[in-house]
Design a protein around this nucleic acid. Structure first.
Lengths: 255, 255
DNA sequence: CGTTGGGTTGATCGACCTCAATAAAAGTGG
DNA sequence: CCACTTTTATTGAGGTCGATCAACCCAACG
């Protein structure tokens, strides 16, 4: 049987790829890098003051409502984004509706890293998202004149690649429980750059999103989390989990 | 139960990471880019004549025997390679011996793309391998002075990333038979750049390697190939398969 | 207060894994 | 060149982890 097929409608989003052109309060506003809390986490951290102000002039602030599309699979990409607030999911759909989430974006993450003309996956907002928007071609040209930034992006691409390979190991060779634990530990580590390393891991995505990220079903994810809670390794809190024994969780994964 | 655990010994390689320092006939020989058949496929294709001769002077020809290690997981990387002949497997091991193959390298592929100090995976030769060897730090410096090459590598990294994400979809959301068909079609497409698009797909890797790439067991891979052969979609030939009906195979995958 | 979208839990089923036997290659040494 | 071993691949029988199907809970919300 075919695993994890579900209705395309179930993943429907409220808007199309270029929906970010609709007007919002903040749309087309310039950005203020000086105030930006996530600058050191993002590509902008690689720039000196002059470069930063140049890049700043290319950037426009953008906002996406929850569930709004940021990219759509197989469609043209005309802008790239640096996420400053909120979270998004990146996923690919098979023709019959099976879905694989290939990643989640949180503040500091760059969307459209490959600068490809067409997106090979869809991205939509899990929560309201604020981002810096760059015209793709303008950004690409800027890059050609700024080897330091290009180098930084190259390093980020290498990092993404290693995360993707790690995810292959998780999906290909780990048990359901291990997958869930890897996911929670990995996500906590990523949030740490934004939140400090709190033991509370925000989960802005649904169980279905987690399942589609881990190659599992929603029921299996739910059961795994329940089991971990029963074993007092974590507690489920609104919109997340609190890890009670990070060390024992780590042991499940690399023991 | 834990899937696909096997003895570490079963994957043992005959040599350590820096075994390429042992002498061979061609070791430390200069390379001759003018004679290189795979130049247009590789990073070198991005260079003009001046740049190429500069890069040529950094390159030394290297040879690896079958099963010899090229990189080792968690160990220092002091050189990167451009494969000119042969094939290699890239894989990660879990502490208990479970293995995930994250990719296969064929002529034209670059090993060490991320230029990381430590390798996150192991690489060893499936067949005798010839490659251009570059000192990692020297290559990295060369890169800083050659934005065009950096850009090319950045694009290659983006391509690798999209392959890795595609592989996530395959492992996470496809059935065993689909995985095997995706693998054969995808590999054929990659060989096409080297061999022309022959319907014969060379398989220098073992069934175990394929299984570890697809998140399956060797038995499941074997059964899937047998089934495809029984259905006259392919025939098994020494060291490979011949695809009899590529169109129907494609249909299994994107139907 | 009915509806709707998540989430949890239970019972059953099946795709793939495990275990086992055999076959076919590929080395190896005499 | 041929026994002998070792490695790799195939095939079968049976077991299991996670999928499927289904019921139910709960909070949000118009």
């Amino acid at each position: 049987m075919i695993p994890a097929r579900h209705d395309l409608a179930a993943h429907g989003v409220e808007s199309t790829a270029d929906a970010h052109f609709v007007c919002h309060r903040h749309h087309h506003a310039n950005v203020d890098c000086a105030q930006c809390k996530i600058r050191p986490l993002s590509i902008c951290g690689a720039l000196d003051d002059d470069e930063l102000s140049e890049l700043e002039s290319l950037a426009r602030s953008a906002h996406f409502a929850q569930r709004q599309a940021i990219f759509s699979q197989d469609e043209k990409v005309d802008a790239v984004f640096n996420v400053t607030d909120g979270a998004a999911r990146l996923y690919r759909l098979l023709p019959d509706g099976r879905r694989q989430v290939v990643g989640f974006a949180i503040p500091g993450d760059f969307l459209g890293l490959a600068l490809a003309e067409k997106s090979i996956y869809s991205v939509d907002a899990l929560t309201p998202v604020n981002a810096c928007r760059f015209n793709r071609e303008a950004f690409s040209s800027f890059l050609d004149a700024r080897p330091a930034l290009l180098r930084r992006l190259y390093e980020m691409a290498g990092h993404e690649l290693s995360l993707a390979q790690e995810q292959m190991v998780i999906i290909g060779r780990r048990t359901a429980e291990e997958r869930v634990v890897c996911f929670l530990i990995g996500l906590r580590k990523r949030w740490a750059r934004v939140n400090g390393n709190s033991v509370t891991v925000p989960l802005p995505m649904t169980r279905q999103d987690i399942a589609d990220f881990l190659g599992l079903t929603i029921e299996t994810v739910s059961r795994a989390i329940s089991k971990l809670a029963r074993e007092k390794l974590l507690v489920v809190v609104p919109d997340g989990v609190r890890l009670l024994e990070p060390a024992r969780l780590e042991a499940i994964v690399d023991g």
